[in-house]
């Protein structure tokens, strides 16, 4: 992967949320997934700014969904991981796990 395409810490969290959520990944569900798993209350703007960047890198793609009443008639923008996104995420997670080995943090 070229240096400019390396994924950052928050990008990694968002990609992991996409991987967990599958077909139902949009702003609210991604925000909630990150909050539930990390305890971080992130802003919707941070999530979408990151998703736009990931889309620019070809690691995620989006489609506009149907408008719904509970959203004031506004449509969702649904995201999913691309093949390149999954590969980048796996590499990134492997690197983190590799770096943590031997530290004794969270190891059974």
């Amino acid at each position: 992967m070229p240096k400019g395409d390396a994924i950052g810490g928050f990008e990694q969290l968002v990609l992991l949320a996409l991987a967990h959520l599958g077909e139902d990944a949009y702003g609210v569900s991604i925000r909630k997934e990150i909050a539930a798993r990390t305890g971080r209350d992130v802003n919707i703007g941070a999530v979408y700014t990151t998703l736009d960047r990931l889309e620019g890198k070809g690691l995620a793609v989006s489609v506009i969904g149907e408008p719904t009443a509970e959203r004031g008639g506004r449509a969702k923008r649904l995201f999913r991981l691309t093949g390149a996104g999954r590969t980048a995420l796996e590499e990134s997670c492997r690197a983190v796990v590799g770096m943590m080995k031997g530290l004794g943090w969270g190891e059974a």
């Binding site: 609210v28 703007g45 509970e70 959203r71 506004r74």
Partner: peptide, 26 residues
């Protein structure tokens, strides 16, 4: 528009203070 839709959806179960803070940040 989809940002606003997301905030409107979450605002149903959140307080005014939460919404004000998130609107400002957004």
């Amino acid at each position: 528009e989809h940002w606003i839709g997301d905030l409107e959806e979450e605002a149903v179960e959140e307080g005014d203070w939460w919404l004000a803070r998130h609107v400002m940040l957004a």
